[in-house]
Amino acid sequence: MNRSKRRARLGLGIVLYILLGLLAIAAIFIFIYVLRHPSDPTTPIAVPSGASASPSPSSESPSPTAEETPEPTPTVEPSPTEPPTPTPEPARFIDGFGRDVLDFDYGQPVPEAEPVGDDFFTDTAFIGNSLTEGFMLYSGLTGVDGFAAKSVSVRNIETVHVVFNGDVINLMDALALKQYGKIFIFLGINEISMKIAEIHDAYGQVIDDIQALQPDASIYIQAITPVTAAAAKDKGAIFNNDRIREINAQLLLLSWEKKCFYIDTFEAFADERGNLPAIASFDGVHLTANYYKTWLAYLKSHAIDKTDYGRKADLQ
């Protein structure tokens, strides 16, 4: 009896071991199957936080129909983090020549570009001395307003009178009669004997005053044009192109400080030695009529358009 009982127990143990072995083998097969079919929608797969739980269709596995595809249930919920705030792209203001006004460096002269037409100067005023008078007379540009007189300088611009529409009127009062989009300033040659710091401060004050009168206008500071080599000799040591370059450097600095466009009209007329060619002037300072046309051509090829965008850019 004891013997038969012992045999029965032994048989039961063997059966149990066989069953456990079979279960282990089945588990191994299931594990291998799962490994080989990771995209099987019926098999939930852990999804990293933040990633999509939906299977992505690929060219190898054509997207199954809605009936065939049960809705996948992600086993891991995405963490409830705040949705990322999209970083706004800074507004880009491109001028008529593809230049980004936002990036405009006021500490550099306006670069050369495809020339604009006369219509660029609609709503434009020119302020300056006798060279601006000459520009108004002989550049051939029409439909613009000129506020110019021979003796105008940063010292007297607040009190000087100009002829405007047939009336002799204070320059700044005349300028206040209308709002302009663009104002070109040409001053500095009558100031040549002033100290550099005085020129800087007085010219800066003129810009401030003009900007106060014309808040929406873009201001263009034109560099003092060169003089001829002969004029530099005749008119004394202070009246030469080195001195003019020195003042022009201040005008460039002011352009940067006051966010004005600096037009390098010195470069426009200087020969390879940095002088105004003798043929371009009767007295060594003022231009002959044809060269005012050259001046206009230079302004046209160094125009910066849509300056209102530039102002918006400044506000950012």
């Binding site: 108004m136 300072v285 003022h286 005012y292």
Partner: peptide, 27 residues
């Protein structure tokens, strides 16, 4: 630019039949 010269001189175009202006260019 006759229009500019009329303005500079204070001339009324109703009183002038024709005009020619030769000026210094600044000197």
């Amino acid at each position: 630019n006759a229009e500019l010269m009329y303005s500079n001189f204070g001339l009324n175009s109703s009183m002038v039949e024709s005009a020619i202006f030769y000026m210094s260019s600044g000197a």
